[in-house]
Computed example of a mutant assay.
Amino acid sequence: MIDIGLTHIALPVSDIEQSIKFYATYAQMQVIHRRIDAGRGVAVAWLSDRTRPFAIVLIQTDSVDPILSPFAHLGVGCHNRESMDALCKKARQEGVLIEEPKDSGPPVGYWAFLRDPDGHTLELSYGQEIGLTVDRTENV
Rank of each mutant, 00 (worst) to 15 (best):
G5T: 02
L6T: 11
A10H: 04
A10C: 07
A10K: 07
I16G: 08
Q18T: 12
S19W: 01
K21F: 09
F22S: 04
A27G: 03
Q28G: 00
M29P: 01
M29H: 03
Q30N: 10
Q30I: 10
I32K: 04
I32W: 01
H33Y: 14
R34C: 05
R35V: 06
R35S: 13
R35L: 11
G39R: 13
W46C: 03
W46G: 03
L47N: 02
D49F: 01
T51G: 04
T51L: 07
R52Y: 04
I56K: 04
I59C: 07
T61D: 11
T61Q: 15
D62Q: 13
P66Y: 10
I67Y: 08
P70N: 06
F71L: 10
L74Y: 00
L74T: 02
G75Q: 00
G77S: 11
R81S: 02
A86F: 07
K89V: 13
K90Q: 15
Q93S: 15
Q93N: 15
E94I: 02
V96N: 10
I98M: 13
K102C: 08
P106L: 06
G109Q: 12
A112C: 05
F113M: 13
L114E: 10
L114W: 09
D116L: 03
P117E: 01
P117V: 03
D118K: 00
D118E: 02
L122W: 00
S125W: 04
Y126R: 11
Y126S: 11
G127L: 01
I130K: 02
L132T: 08
L132E: 14
D135R: 01
R136V: 04
R136L: 13
T137S: 15
V140A: 15
V140P: 04
V140I: 14
